[in-house]
Design a protein around this nucleic acid. Structure first.
Lengths: 333, 333
DNA sequence: ACTTTCCCCTGGAACGTTCCAGGGGAGATA
DNA sequence: TATCTCCCCTGGAACGTTCCAGGGGAAAGT
């Protein structure tokens, strides 16, 4: 049950602990014969270096701590893939702690990672008040991924929500739509940006924006769609705050017998799994999630290595055209 | 940037390192005055105990390692919630490593956790060949969650797929369906069990089972549904291997203009987010995911504490009735 | 034959904790 | 006054590594 140490290996191989250490770290100035003996002994005993002891003496853990605000959101799965890739290639390991969408739990997660002496910490979509985190940032490089950091000392990597909303509007306008309504996502920062992007793009096209309030949930989409259908000036296209809300819109349209996309086009945001697996695959805005993680990891690694401050990064979203958007039918136009 | 140690705190508080250690661990036999001084000093310096050093000397890390086979699958998000809850309440921390649905990466993840000297490891839905893991099980308690372990030395926690399939069939039969087809999920163990459960339940009701091959993906559902619709004996209900496949079925039915659930009822499996957020919310079989994690964590903790071997556990699935299943229309019956 | 060089190896100190044996001093007891 | 308790505190050893200074011996140079 208990773990063999470097001494156990040394004894079995008939060499000193130092020689075992050298072999394990791949030093070159070791005779082939001794090296083979050490490797054999280590194998036989099932020896594994104790990372805690290594971390202590090396003053470095080669651990990239990652706090995942919400594991239920597959958005972060891709971000983590990106982090993991970037980090593995330079000999680091990504260790994840779940934040459970809860500020206290995130603070706790950060504490755990700091005690473990992670060399840097990436906050993936933090819900925690960033000010609580700033103090910690004094002892470890910190990077925020997928949310804007409100604090200058903490760099963040995000995508451009203003631009994403413009992409959606441009696409619909190009198809010939003029009456394009937006169901917004509430008070969250990214919701505000998407709304502003929508409004600006509409005006740029000489169209009148029309926003109804909603949320980042299926129900938000349902309410928004109901409001829009009840009005006397039905739109020909709806741009929802995210995919979940778009699914709500689709369900209202399905129940009311409206034909999608024949009568009404729908665009979501985020390109989540539901957008793909929906009965009618959803046109949506994609964020480069994996890249988001990769860039965040790179920033963090840079800060570990030279300690210099790094800039925040904003990445470009893209449009993914699927089956919920077409040219509006003439009768409705 | 660098972290203060127990000595820094001791110097600032004017006491010995041992006293600081005692205060940090909440020992009672310390005078109030000294305790206050130590706490103040620790606070001022931003002192955080070094978990690596603690782990070394205590010969215990209070880390529960978790290998998550697939972060993109929200199934595991709930499992992890369960693990985290169970583990936190006894002073442990769950540290996650992503397996990226890849046997090599999982082996690597296990290696990482073993080097960190996690006190136990939970494999959540492992894709790795369990035999590769058995050797590791000699040095650390191991528990498999959400998949059946083929090895006696490694206990597992799963839900009863045979029973889940029976639940689906019973529900449809109760509604009056007789022609119930199953689109299976391929070769995976759980797919086989669901198919067997379906077949057994059908025979129990005196009905003839009809299985078409598919997979655990949207495409699998699409192909299966196309096969069924092309045949001359259309079913009145389809039981898909999982929710994703069911979404594929729904999309084929949507395209062909078939009314769901009026003409055809559909049942999925897993109760994933798509089941809820689908335009027509999906009737499906739910696995007690959180409980799965909790039980796995409890088994692991038991093995840490008394080292005795523990039994595998099988939990009960439940039926979640939503909008894709109704009594078949007379004309079709 | 003596020194130098080089290769391969070794022991000791250090990393930041915990825990244990023991010590100083105040108050109680004789 | 001398002894005993008890409370609070301290220093040292240990945990499993890495890294450094240095050592032994063979080969090479003088």
């Amino acid at each position: 049950m208990s773990h063999p140490t470097i001494f156990d290996v040394a004894r079995r191989a008939g060499v000193s602990k130092s020689l075992v250490s050298m072999v394990m770290r791949g030093a070159t100035n070791v005779s082939d014969e001794r090296r083979a003996r050490v490797i054999a002994a280590a194998e036989e005993l099932g020896y594994r270096p104790n990372a805690a002891a290594q971390s202590l003496v090396r003053q470095k853990s080669f651990v990239m701590g990652v706090i995942v605000s919400d594991l239920h959101n597959t958005f972060f799965a891709d971000v983590i893939d990106g982090i993991d890739n970037a980090v593995r290639s330079v000999g680091y390991r990504a260790l994840l702690v779940s934040g459970h969408l809860n500020a206290d739990r995130e603070t706790e997660a950060l504490e755990t990672l700091l005690r473990l002496r992670a060399d840097a910490v990436i906050l993936a979509g933090p819900a925690v008040d960033i000010d609580d985190v700033v103090a910690a940032a004094a002892s470890v490089p910190l990077v925020v991924a997928g949310a804007v950091s409100s604090h200058a000392a903490i760099p963040s990597v995000t995508t451009d929500d203003l631009r994403g909303a413009a992409l959606a509007v441009d696409h619909l306008v190009e198809l010939g739509h003029k009456k394009i309504s937006h169901i917004d996502g509430g008070d969250a920062l990214s919701s505000r940006l998407r709304r502003q992007g929508y409004e600006a793009a509409m005006r740029r096209h000489g169209l009148e924006p029309r926003v109804v309030s909603g949320s980042f949930t299926r129900d938000g989409g349902i309410h928004g769609a109901q409001t829009l259908l009840a009005g006397d000036d039905e739109p020909t296209a709806i741009f929802a705050a995210n995919d979940l809300a778009a699914m709500g819109v689709l369900s209202v349209l399905h129940d009311s017998g409206a034909d999608v996309p024949g009568e009404l086009s729908v665009v979501g945001y985020d390109n989540t799994a539901v957008a793909q697996s929906s009965p009618i695959p959803l046109t949506t805005i994609d964020q480069p999630r994996t890249e988001l993680g990769e860039v965040a990891a790179r920033l963090a690694l840079e800060r570990i290595n030279d300690g210099t401050d790094v800039q925040s990064v904003v990445l470009e979203p893209t449009l993914v055209i699927r089956d919920t958007t077409v040219t509006p039918t003439h009768s409705r136009q």
